[in-house]
């Protein structure tokens, strides 16, 4: 077996305890695994940003103060911190288009989902890509994440116009028009899925539409919490 990330052969340490059990099917090697940083526990109760103290981070406070955005997004859950190693992997996965790399986060994604949402009957809605970006990239990164979770997925959103989010400032992002369109009504609570939570604008735009379209509550799940 080769490490999905660094392509080195994964060597299994044989000890007395695993001598007779079949080798674990590790996808990435030990050293790549240790570079990934799980989000540590004291965190903002809305957006999952790691914080020293307090309940809600400043960004979320700003969102909640605003009449039109209050309570739109119940809660975001993220798996990893956006450290250097993660930045490189996400860049290779998303921008270079190495689709298979998402597999290396499979267990962590499933584990975190189980931990937070296993009790609820949720509908997974991946954040869509614009037509252009989709044909350029060949896959939707949000759908790739959603596909790893054992829950029903429905693509009820489309994106009208696409300009790269990562090139805008926070102010620009918050004040942009809603780039999404809702294709059908939903009745179940929704779990939005995306790769990054940076300012939360994209997710809140999508959540607002879903709420207007009948969803009783909207949560979100992202691979990474950045910013």
């Amino acid at each position: 077996m080769r490490c999905l990330n660094c392509h080195e052969i994964i060597l299994h340490q044989v000890t007395w305890s695993n001598l007779f059990s079949p080798p674990s099917d590790a996808i990435i090697c030990e050293s790549c695994f240790t570079q990934l940083e799980r989000i540590s526990m004291p965190q903002c109760s809305i957006c999952a940003r790691p914080m020293a103290r307090g309940k809600i981070c400043k960004d979320c406070e700003r969102w909640e103060r605003d009449e039109s955005w209050r309570g739109i997004l119940e809660k975001n859950v993220a798996v990893f911190n956006y450290n250097e190693a993660m930045k490189n992997i996400v860049a290779r996965w998303k921008y270079r288009g190495d689709y298979i790399l998402i597999e290396m986060f499979k267990y962590e994604i499933q584990e975190v989902f189980q931990l937070h949402f296993s009790q609820q009957d949720l509908l997974l809605v991946p954040i869509p890509l614009s037509q252009e970006r989709m044909s350029e990239r060949g896959f939707n990164q949000a759908l790739a994440i959603a596909a790893l979770i054992k829950a029903p997925v429905r693509e009820v959103l489309t994106r009208i116009h696409g300009e790269k989010q990562s090139k805008k400032s926070r102010k620009e992002r918050v004040n942009t028009e809603n780039p999404f369109q809702l294709l059908e009504q939903v009745s179940k609570p929704v779990l939005l899925v995306d790769d990054l939570y940076t300012t939360g604008t994209t997710l809140r735009h999508a959540a607002k539409l879903l709420k207007e379209g009948g969803a009783p509550a909207v949560y979100s799940f992202t691979l990474v919490r950045s910013g």
Partner: peptide, 24 residues
């Protein structure tokens, strides 16, 4: 073999030279 993978539409791409732009 381990440096090839496929996209959702089934097209096989090369992971070895992906830093130069993906080809499938």
């Amino acid at each position: 073999g381990h440096l090839f993978a496929s996209l959702p539409d089934g097209a096989v791409y090369c992971r070895n030279c992906i830093m130069m732009g993906r080809i499938s």
